[in-house]
């Protein structure tokens, strides 16, 4: 007896058993997303450790006031650092969520719906975060207050 159940997301039956990759799928998307997870995970550990150790332990959380924030903000490297942190954190998390959604939600319609919601939330958060980091002017903000 040979199992020949046609399943969503599978291609033609392959000689000797199993199935071909379905046509039209992004070539190598999975391999690069896997590689991205390794690299972004490593980068995130370094970024988060620096953030934690320098700002919370060396500078000290009790010394973090608006003056420190304004000084930090005037340094373009600090902004770039935070753009990297927010981008890698959100995309790394998004890809992990995609893995979980594909593992656990088997119904195709529901899977698309959940993915649409999660992708939208992450995308909007990412755009707002990066926009704020690049355009926010703390000096005038605190002067007004």
């Amino acid at each position: 007896m040979t199992v020949a159940a046609q399943v969503d997301g599978r291609g033609e039956p392959r000689r000797g058993g199993g199935y071909d990759r379905p046509k039209g799928r992004l070539a190598n998307f999975e391999v690069f997303s896997w590689f991205f997870m390794r690299i972004s995970g490593l980068v995130l550990i370094l970024l988060a450790l620096y953030h934690l150790i320098w700002w919370n332990l060396v500078i000290g959380v009790e010394h973090l006031d608006s003056q420190v924030v304004i000084e930090r903000w005037s340094n373009p490297f600090w902004r770039l650092f935070n753009v990297l942190l927010v981008t890698f954190a959100l995309l790394h998390g998004l890809n992990g969520a995609r893995y979980s959604i594909e593992d656990y939600i088997r119904r195709r319609g529901l899977q698309i719906a959940v993915k649409t919601i999660v992708y939208s939330v992450v995308l909007v958060t990412l755009v707002i975060g990066v926009y704020a980091l690049l355009t926010f002017d703390p000096a005038s903000f605190f002067a007004i207050r």
């Binding site: 007896m1 040979t2 199992v3 392959r14 000797g16 058993g17 199993g18 199935y19």
Partner: peptide, 12 residues
């Protein structure tokens, strides 16, 4: 075990 052997055969 047939689904298992079908997957086994699929990798040549």
């Amino acid at each position: 075990m047939e689904p298992f052997f079908a997957q086994f055969r699929s990798v040549l």
